[in-house]
Amino acid sequence: MTPPFADELNLRLCHRCKYACSLDRDRHRCSRCNALLHRRKPDAIARTWALLLAAFVFYVPANVLPILRTTALQHDSTTTILGSVVDLWQDGAWDIAVIIFVASVVVPVAKFLILAFLLVTVQRRSRGSCRERTQLYRGLELIGYWSMLDVFVVGLLAALVQFGVLGDIEPRLGILFFGLVVVLTMMATLTFDSRLIWDAVKDER
């Protein structure tokens, strides 16, 4: 037996406190926490697309511009995200190279692809593999913030390595764009509403 959907019982989920509100009693606000009630997150598709595209645009400078600058005695160099992965690999620290590569390249690219895929399938009202698509969305919620790794590493390195002429590490503009990409993709994940995936199924019934 398949469970009913909230609409069919005239119920509505409160986004904030997850209470099952009865629409016979409360039309607009949650009776438990007083948050505004929405059937689906407002303008979910348009807002998610906008945030996703903004993140995608920022992802270019995030990769092209250097994220940090290292100075030591007569040596002066800047590194990009991919450059730092290559350096670590060549230094033999392949485990850390893999961690940074996954957090800074694989996770953001996977987020772009998965969100775009979810948006397109929802807009085409696809009815296939709803369960798998919902699980993909939960995966996004889990991995989202791990991309912040490189931003924290740059902050920590810059705070630690301050020895004047003997050696300095300074953050560079690339890390700002990269951090914004992470924040924007997290916001895109939060504005998307996975219940939209199931609306096509519900309309079938």
């Binding site: 989920l13 099952a20 919902t134 519900k202």
Partner: peptide
């Protein structure tokens, strides 16, 4: 009473 019900936040199913 609706407080005995749970709505799945991912797919809107009611239990």
């Amino acid at each position: 009473d609706s407080s005995d019900l749970i709505i799945c936040e991912y797919c809107d199913s009611v239990y």
